[in-house]
Every structure is written in structure tokens, then in C-alpha cells.
Simulated assay, not measured.
Amino acid sequence: MEFKRYFLEQLESEAEASRKAIERVPEGQNGWKPHEKSMELGKLAALVATMPGWVAVMIDYDELDLNGNGKAFQTKALATRAELLAALESGLAASRKALENTTEEHLMKTWRLKMDSQVLSEGPRYFTISNGALSHLAHHRGQLTVYLRLNEAKVPAIYGPSADESH
């Protein structure tokens, strides 16, 4: 199977799981966080909503400098579930398009995450998409489901049943 076909399938699966969590985010509580060192709910929800779009960034750019072109991608809280869902769909559409138009050869080329001249991570695009975007998304979505529980919202079934849903 081609990487791009695999990533398209994985992207759809992860987007559906993220959509379920985002649909439960309580509105009006963007500043809530479980601990002073934790990320605020609004920023975390926006991060989960926008992360499917990271695949397009990893395909369309050779590198992302967090202090340069990466500033345009910094996550900001969104006010409503509708805005979160729109951000998810926008990023998903961009990543679908990027994957459909890329080649296996391009996915083998190096991609870098930098901060000024310091390289934070570097590797083949296929690995950075898998690890830096899709697995990373699952991690933050897991955090978001904990935030949902702590805010008395029902936790969706994602990879299996939850205490609130059987499927």
C-alpha cells in the first residue's frame, strides 16, 4: 500500500475520532484548566481541531520554523464548537488535497521542525506525518477527553467503548 493511501485512511479515522470529542467541548470554558501547568481547555480543543491540517503543512513545506513561518500556525482558542468543527474540516480538506497530490518520492524526503537555527526534529516526511501529526493528535485528543470528563461532559467512544457510550 502506498503511504499516501494509508495516511488518507488514517487521517479520516483520526478526524472522525476528533470530531466526536470536539462535539462535546463545553462552550464558555476556554480558560479552564485542571492544573496551573496544564494547557487551557480552549487552546487544547483548538489544537485537536487544527492538528489534522498539520499533514498538509508537512507535505507543502520542507520545514517549519516556530519563530518564522510557523507563527502563522500557532494555536489560538476558538469561541464555539461550530468554529472548532469548521477548523477541523478546513484542515482536513487541506490535508486530503495535499495527500492526494503528493508522491511517494516526496514522502521520503526530509522534513524539519526548527526554532530559528535549532533543528528540533528532522526525518522523512512519512515518519513526521505518522509520529508528529497523527500520533501526536491521538495524544492531545486523549488529554481533551480527560478535560471533558473533569467538566462533566460525556466522553465519546473512540477506539472502543467509554463509560458514557458502548460504541
Rank of each mutant, 00 (worst) to 15 (best):
M1H: 05
E2H: 10
E2C: 08
F3P: 01
F7A: 01
L8E: 09
E9H: 11
Q10A: 13
L11C: 01
E12F: 07
S13L: 15
S13V: 14
E16H: 10
E16P: 01
R19G: 13
I22E: 04
I22K: 06
V25E: 02
Q29F: 08
N30Q: 07
N30P: 05
K33W: 03
K33Q: 14
P34E: 07
P34H: 08
P34R: 05
E36N: 13
K37N: 14
S38H: 10
E40T: 13
L41I: 08
A45K: 05
A45C: 14
A45I: 01
L47I: 02
L47S: 09
A49V: 09
T50I: 10
T50E: 12
M51D: 07
G53A: 00
W54I: 13
V55S: 02
V55H: 07
V57S: 04
V57A: 09
Y61A: 09
D62R: 02
D62T: 11
G68V: 11
G68Y: 11
N69S: 02
K71P: 04
A72I: 11
Q74Y: 05
Q74M: 15
K76V: 13
K76P: 04
A77C: 02
T80H: 02
A86M: 08
A87F: 03
S95C: 07
R96Q: 14
N101M: 03
N101C: 09
E104R: 07
E105A: 14
H106R: 15
L107H: 00
L107A: 04
L107I: 04
M108A: 15
K109V: 09
T110G: 03
T110D: 09
T110F: 07
W111Q: 00
W111P: 05
L113F: 12
K114V: 04
K114L: 13
M115Q: 15
S117T: 14
S117L: 09
S117D: 15
S117M: 10
S117E: 15
Q118D: 13
V119C: 04
L120I: 12
S121T: 15
S121D: 12
E122T: 10
E122Y: 07
E122L: 03
E122M: 06
G123L: 04
P124S: 11
Y126Q: 11
Y126S: 08
Y126M: 09
T128I: 13
N131P: 06
N131K: 02
G132S: 05
A133G: 00
A133H: 01
S135C: 15
H136D: 06
L137M: 11
H140R: 02
L144P: 00
V146C: 12
Y147F: 12
L148S: 08
R149A: 14
R149N: 13
R149G: 12
N151A: 11
V155C: 12
V155S: 05
P156R: 00
A157G: 14
A157E: 01
Y159M: 06
Y159F: 15
P161I: 07
A163G: 09
D164V: 04
E165M: 11
S166W: 12
S166M: 14
S166R: 14
